[in-house]
Nucleic acid binder design. Structure first.
Length: 548
RNA sequence: CGGGGCGUAGCGCAACGGUAGCGCACGUGCUUUGGGAGCACGAGGUUGUGGGUUCGAAUCCCGCCGCCCCGACCA
């Protein structure tokens, strides 16, 4: 039986309320135990062997200086270390026995599912249909589009043997699906009446990486790739914008991450595309992260695969293509855009748990009274609908101490915590604590259910605003290369600077400073200037930053 | 692919020629619970792998494998 005899209060959703340490085997055992008493008695926990566990190790520094979580690296001192600690200790993901690949654990996967589902709604609302294409791309197909091959070659993983024999033609494990899709749809597209063809794939892709950073850079990752074909370039251009808008909305409205929309420079354009649009976000270390890209493929792949359709004017033409992608990297963006010294700070829309209730009691009598108050409360919470669906809450009845639970859930970024103890029961209140600023206030239990949707919506807005303020405070306009270098060195952040459009100037800046052109923003005003490097005229400022 | 580091219990480490131990985590029990509780007992290891040296190897030597970090490329 469970550690807590009244486990009926416990939600069956988490891998365990008091998981702080975490070896996989232990996690699995805990899961097994919970499952044995939960809703699905027969269900076995997933096999999570070989996963590296990481002890929380809070005893190494029992008296933390400021925060309550002393076990993660200091965010301002060591951002990469902080990021790694957060991902591992929140049990979002772990390293795997496979080089360069990660295991996405339940808490991380839940966050991915949230953004995935929201993006899927956008994709379907705009008329795209989900499809599936093979994991393998025959070498001959991948090599049809010249720029495409050249761009992806270094990152492609090949299957050379199967069935005990060497294959007559190598198979690429898809780094992306343009090539195989173009080959297939040429049979589907005969007439302008077959266009536009609007498809989307949810799948995994492999791009061989030598450096691994959980969620940000792994050899295999999950994503969505939309592929569309249009009779006209204008139709395709419109779709490029539709994709980018879906990404903007998911980033800003769902994940509370403000983004800058713009066009990529030629050097940063997708291999095989005429142009690429992207959204860029600022992380809390002031570096940029690309949050989604949308490509105009023009007729490049259509010509390579010889896709033709008969237009209204009875002339055979190549259709125009687009493709756009959004990956699990955005889970990393969510961590890095909002997290603080105590761990994750999640936007309510994407948070696996929006509210955690922590019971506090000393005696059995108190426990009974607190349980009764919580039962009465949760009866009202079960009907609550938030901007992201039914309220997601959990009562933490595990037998860890209250202080332990506070730290545990703060590390995991749960937006609200409600503490209910004997004193609160007597007054019909609880103590409601906001994760983002840790403000505490008494909250009457009777009215809480009605208030929560607004409180969550306000929290969501506040997170977005905080991120936007941060970005604006760290965006600098510079006009000379000396100023550029000095500002980048001193403050980092986004640098808005004039650029003539020449790839050589772009490269020089990248080589000398490490900064790249993230985008040529759509929303910046036209502004005559002189290129940082060669002084030639520039029509508007472009966004430079060090990027992930 | 170049440079560096590391493989000992789930995690972090110690033992550095005489056959493996500590902390955390884990299990049981009792006492606890308003910011990471305490005590007691307990379970857990062919020391990454293959070979060599030696009376004896986690330890010394060689090969292999794996992982991490730093550089060039990417969502």
């Amino acid at each position: 039986m469970p550690v807590s005899s009244s486990s009926a209060h416990s939600c069956s959703c988490s891998a365990g309320a008091r998981t702080t340490d975490s070896s996989a085997d232990q996690g699995a055992r805990r899961l097994a135990r919970r499952h044995s008493i939960g809703r699905s008695p027969g269900e076995q926990p997933p096999g999570l062997r070989h996963v590296r566990g990481h002890a929380l190790g809070y005893h190494t520094d029992p008296m933390a200086k400021t925060g309550f979580v002393s076990s993660i690296a200091d965010q301002s001192e060591d951002f990469p270390g902080w990021y790694n600690d957060v991902v591992l200790k929140t049990e979002m993901a772990s390293y795997s026995p496979v080089r360069g690949c990660m295991i996405i654990r339940p808490y991380g996967y839940a966050i991915w599912e949230s953004m995935r589902d929201e993006l899927d709604r956008h994709i379907k609302r705009t008329g795209h249909q989900n499809v599936y294409f093979p994991l393998f791309v025959p070498r001959s197909l991948l090599e049809k589009e010249a720029e495409h091959v050249e761009g992806f070659n270094p990152q492609v993983a090949w299957v050379t043997h199967a069935g005990g024999e060497e294959l007559s033609e190598w198979l690429a494990i898809r780094p992306t699906s343009e090539a195989i899709i173009a080959e297939v749809v040429k049979d589907w597209i005969q007439s302008y009446r077959d266009l536009p063809l609007l498809m989307n794939l949810w799948n995994n892709v492999v791009r061989w990486e030598l450096r691994t950073r959980l969620f940000l850079r792994t050899a295999e990752f999950l994503w969505q790739e939309a592929h569309t074909f249009h009779a006209t370039e204008a139709g395709a251009a419109e779709n490029v914008a539709i994709g980018l808008e879906a990404y903007r909305s998911v980033s800003e409205d769902w994940l509370a991450i403000p983004v800058v929309r713009g066009r990529k420079s030629r050097a940063e354009t997708f291999p095989g595309a005429d142009y690429s649009h992207a959204i860029e976000a600022m992380m809390r270390d002031k570096r940029a992260l690309q949050a989604g890209t949308s490509h105009m493929l023009g007729q490049n792949f259509a010509k390579a695969a010889d896709i033709q359709f008969l237009d209204v004017d009875n002339v055979r033409k190549h259709p125009y293509g687009t493709s756009w992608g959004f990956s699990t990297r955005m889970v990393g963006a969510t961590i890095m855009a909002h997290g603080d010294e105590s761990g994750l700070v999640l936007p309510p829309n994407a948070a696996p748990k929006q509210l955690v209730i922590v019971p506090i009691f000393r005696t059995e009598e108190d426990r009974t009274a607190v349980a009764a108050a919580i039962d009465a409360l949760t009866a009202t919470l079960d009907g609550v609908t938030t901007a992201s669906g039914p309220l997601r809450y959990q009562v933490d009845w595990s037998d860890a101490s209250p202080g332990f639970k506070y730290s545990h859930w703060e590390l995991r970024g749960v937006p609200f915590r409600l503490e209910i103890g004997p004193r609160d029961v007597a007054s019909g209140q609880g103590v409601l604590v906001r994760r983002v600023d840790r403000t505490k206030e008494p909250a009457p239990l009777a009215g809480l259910a009605a208030e929560l949707p607004k409180r969550l919506a306000d929290y969501q807005k506040a997170l977005f605003q905080r991120a936007l303020d941060f970005r604006e405070a760290n965006t600098h306009s510079v006009d000379t290369y000396d100023d550029f270098k000095a500002t980048l060195e001193a403050d980092g952040g986004f640098l808005m600077a004039p650029w003539c459009g020449d790839a050589a100037c772009e490269k020089q800046i990248n080589d000398e400073t490490g900064a790249t052109i993230r985008v040529i923003p759509f929303d910046s005003p036209d502004e005559a200037g002189k290129c940082l490097i060669d002084g030639r005229p520039s029509e508007r400022r472009v966004l430079f930053a060090k990027a992930y």
